[in-house]
Simulated scan of single mutants.
Amino acid sequence: MSTFVTTSHGADFFGEDRHLTKSLASLADYARGCLAADERDQLVQLLTAQEMAEVGTEQSIPAAVAGRLADQLGRIARNHYLRSKRLAEAAALLAAAAGRAAADGEPWQWRIETSP
């Protein structure tokens, strides 16, 4: 059974994206290396907390925070040290979803789910 995060404002037909929690934790490692220490804490905490969260846990990220996270995730996605195309794509999808939430002035929703 895999655990993943479903985010709002995504690119699929239902306006959602799904990311494995293990992928998000790996992305947090790149955030530590790509972003300045004074700006990365909130993003790293968000990405790593999902791996420990229980199924059914939901989190709402305010639009203003989503805008900052969109910028940070976009910089990670474009960083030349991020060699994994899968992780770069995940960072780009997260950045786009966070940006849409911020532009709409809506909270960015995260939900923990499992798949068989």
Rank of each mutant, 00 (worst) to 15 (best):
M1K: 10
N79Y: 04
A66G: 05
L73D: 08
P62R: 12
K85V: 15
G33T: 13
Q72A: 10
V5Q: 06
E106G: 08
S84R: 10
L46M: 09
R32M: 14
A98W: 02
L47Y: 04
Q50E: 14
S60M: 07
K85R: 14
A64W: 09
D104R: 11
H80V: 13
A36Y: 02
L27F: 01
A96T: 12
L27T: 01
A31D: 02
D41Q: 14
A66D: 04
E39N: 11
R18Y: 03
D41I: 11
S60P: 00
L20D: 10
T7R: 03
A102G: 08
A53I: 05
A90I: 06
H80T: 15
Y81C: 13
E51G: 14
F13C: 14
T48H: 09
A63N: 10
D17V: 09
G99P: 07
S84A: 01
R78M: 14
L35G: 00
D38G: 11
N79M: 03
C34S: 11
E16D: 08
E113N: 06
D41C: 12
Q59M: 11
W108L: 08
S2T: 12
R86I: 12
E89N: 12
P116A: 10
Q50F: 15
L94V: 03
N79I: 09
A64P: 11
V5W: 00
M1W: 04
Q42G: 13
D29Y: 11
P107F: 01
G74F: 00
S23K: 08
A31I: 08
R75N: 05
M1Q: 04
M52E: 14
F4W: 07
L24R: 01
H80M: 15
R40Q: 11
R111P: 10
S23M: 05
S26H: 14
A102E: 00
G10R: 09
A98R: 06
Q72N: 02
L47K: 00
A31E: 04
K85H: 13
A101E: 01
L73Q: 06
R83G: 14
G105D: 01
A97W: 04
A63Y: 08
T57N: 03
T21E: 05
E51T: 13
A101C: 05
A90Q: 10
W110A: 07
G56C: 06
V44I: 02
E58G: 10
T7F: 06
E54C: 12
D38H: 07
V44H: 09
T114V: 12
T7H: 02
A95H: 00
G74E: 08
A70T: 06
W108A: 06
R32N: 15
L35V: 07
W110Q: 10
L24P: 08
A77T: 05
G33W: 11
S23H: 06
A36G: 12
G15I: 09
Y30D: 08
H9D: 11
L73S: 02
S26F: 11
L46V: 01
F14P: 12
Y81E: 14
K22F: 15
R40T: 01
L46N: 06
E54L: 08
A64N: 13
D71G: 13
A63H: 00
A96W: 05
A88I: 09
A31G: 01
G67T: 02
E54W: 09
D17Q: 12
L27D: 07
V44D: 05
A91S: 06
G10A: 00
M52G: 13
R78H: 15
M52L: 15
Q50P: 13
A98G: 02
D38F: 00
L20W: 11
